[in-house]
Amino acid sequence: MEYIVLSVIIFCIGVAGILLRRNLIIILMSVELMLSASNISFVAFSKMHGNLDGQAVVLLLYVLAACEAAVGLAIIVGLFRLKGSVDIQLFRDLKK
């Protein structure tokens, strides 16, 4: 159970990072933090149930994290080219 609470706490820290920070890269890192929080609980459940399914799923999740990072960073680079900044507050073109 302690592992799950740890996972929840890390997840919430990630959410807070997303909500509070303006730097897009840090927001991306917060997302990664949230993903890794889920990894902790997967591995913990794997241990708890005595099978390896959780670990297999975590390995798949790593690939998804890599995808997310790749696409996210490409988007950030694109946005930086557009505005010369990674401040999320500048990207509000949808409002206009």
């Binding site: 997303i18 909500l19 303006r22 999320i88 509000r92």
Partner: peptide, 14 residues
């Protein structure tokens, strides 16, 4: 509600 700021949307989502 539409401010154009992603964090606000995220806030609603959360």
């Amino acid at each position: 509600l539409q401010t154009g700021l992603t964090p606000h949307y995220l806030f609603f989502m959360v």
